[in-house]
Computed example of a mutant assay.
Amino acid sequence: MPANPKYLTQSKWQRFAKITAAILGGYLVSISFHLALASWFNKANIIITMAFSGFIVWVALMVIAFLAKNGWKIWLIYLGLSLFFSGLLYLGQSYNPITK
C-alpha cells in the first residue's frame, strides 16, 4: 500500500535537505559527541563503545531528521550541536592534554 501523498514532502529542496541532514548531519553530530566524550573520559573505553553506540545515535538522528517539518532547521540544529560538541572537544583537549 503506497503512502498517502499529502504526508510526503512536496519540495525537492526540503527532501534534499532532510536526506543530507539525516546522513551527513547525523554522522557529524554522532562523531563529534563521541569525540567530545573521549576528550573528557577514558579514550579507549569511549572509542570502543563508539563502535556500537555511534551507530545507534546516528540512526536515531536520521529518524529525527525525517520526522521534522523543515529540513533546513534540522541542518541548523545539527550544525549547532556539532559546533557545541567540537567546543567541548577543544576544552577537553586543552584541560586534559595527552601525556606520553
Rank of each mutant, 00 (worst) to 15 (best):
A36S: 08
V57C: 13
G71Q: 00
Y78K: 01
A22F: 02
S94C: 03
N96H: 14
A44P: 09
I77E: 00
A65T: 03
I48L: 14
P2V: 03
S82Y: 06
S39K: 01
F84R: 13
L35Q: 11
L89M: 12
W75G: 00
F55E: 12
T49V: 09
W75A: 00
L79D: 00
V59F: 09
A60T: 10
I74F: 01
A68N: 02
G92T: 10
N42P: 03
V57K: 07
K69S: 10
G92L: 03
L35K: 09
I46W: 05
G26N: 01
W13R: 13
N45M: 09
L76W: 05
A51H: 13
K69H: 05
N45E: 14
N45V: 11
A65M: 02
Q93K: 09
F52C: 05
G80R: 04
K100A: 12
I56D: 02
L76Y: 03
I46T: 09
A51G: 13
K6G: 08
I19P: 05
M50R: 15
G54V: 01
I74N: 02
Y78V: 03
I64S: 05
G92K: 09
G26E: 02
G92F: 11
W58L: 11
F33L: 13
A68Y: 05
W13V: 14
I46F: 07
F16D: 06
Y90G: 12
L67N: 07
A44E: 14
F85V: 08
I74L: 00
P97M: 08
M1N: 08
Y78N: 04
L8Q: 11
A3G: 13
I64R: 07
M50D: 09
A36T: 05
L83G: 11
R15D: 05
L37R: 14
Y7E: 07
A17P: 00
F52W: 14
W72V: 05
K69W: 02
L91C: 06
G26V: 04
V63H: 06
L67F: 10
G92M: 08
S82G: 13
S86L: 15
K6A: 10
H34P: 01
F41S: 04
L83D: 07
G87W: 13
Y27H: 14
A3E: 15
M1C: 11
G92V: 11
W40F: 12
I64K: 06
K12E: 09
A21V: 00
W75T: 00
R15V: 12
S32I: 02
P2W: 04
G92P: 12
Y78I: 07
G71F: 01
T9M: 06
L91K: 10
I47R: 02
W40V: 12
F55G: 15
K43M: 05
